[in-house]
Amino acid sequence: TRRLSELRVIDLRAELKKRNLDTGGNKSVLMERLKKAVKEEGQD
């Protein structure tokens, strides 16, 4: 898996959309949101 920081905004939005998460905001907001989601998934 590529590091989140290497993803483009369009990629971040696609990942968030797959998880039914909000896709609004700038790159840093999107990255934080996705990071949190990935962390929570890992705790399942």
Score class of each variant (00 low, 15 high):
T1C: 12
T1W: 03
R2C: 08
R2W: 11
R3K: 13
R3S: 13
L4V: 09
S5T: 09
S5H: 10
E6N: 15
L7F: 12
R8D: 13
R8I: 01
R8Y: 02
R8H: 10
V9T: 13
V9M: 09
V9S: 10
I10T: 15
I10M: 15
I10R: 15
I10H: 10
D11V: 02
D11R: 00
D11S: 03
L12T: 03
L12C: 03
L12R: 01
L12I: 11
A14Y: 06
E15P: 00
E15W: 00
L16I: 00
L16A: 07
L16Q: 00
L16P: 06
K17T: 10
K17I: 02
K17M: 15
K17D: 11
K17L: 10
K18L: 09
R19N: 00
R19Y: 02
R19T: 03
R19W: 01
L21V: 02
D22C: 10
D22S: 10
D22T: 03
D22A: 11
D22E: 06
D22V: 04
T23Y: 04
G24D: 11
G24C: 13
G25Q: 01
G25L: 00
K27G: 04
K27D: 01
K27Y: 13
K27N: 04
K27T: 06
S28V: 11
V29D: 14
V29Y: 02
V29T: 08
V29H: 02
V29S: 04
V29L: 11
V29C: 08
L30S: 05
L30W: 02
L30M: 11
M31C: 04
E32G: 09
E32K: 05
E32S: 11
E32C: 06
E32W: 03
R33A: 04
L34N: 07
L34Q: 08
L34V: 06
L34W: 02
K35D: 13
K35F: 07
K35S: 06
K35Q: 13
K35N: 14
K35H: 12
K35I: 15
K36A: 13
K36R: 13
K36P: 05
A37H: 10
A37Q: 08
A37W: 02
A37L: 00
A37F: 02
A37M: 02
V38H: 11
V38E: 12
V38T: 12
V38P: 05
K39G: 14
K39M: 11
K39P: 13
K39Q: 08
E40C: 11
E40M: 07
E40A: 13
E40K: 04
E41P: 06
G42A: 14
G42M: 07
G42L: 06
Q43I: 09
Q43S: 13
Q43W: 08
Q43T: 09
Q43C: 08
D44E: 15
D44V: 08
D44H: 10
D44C: 14
D44F: 05
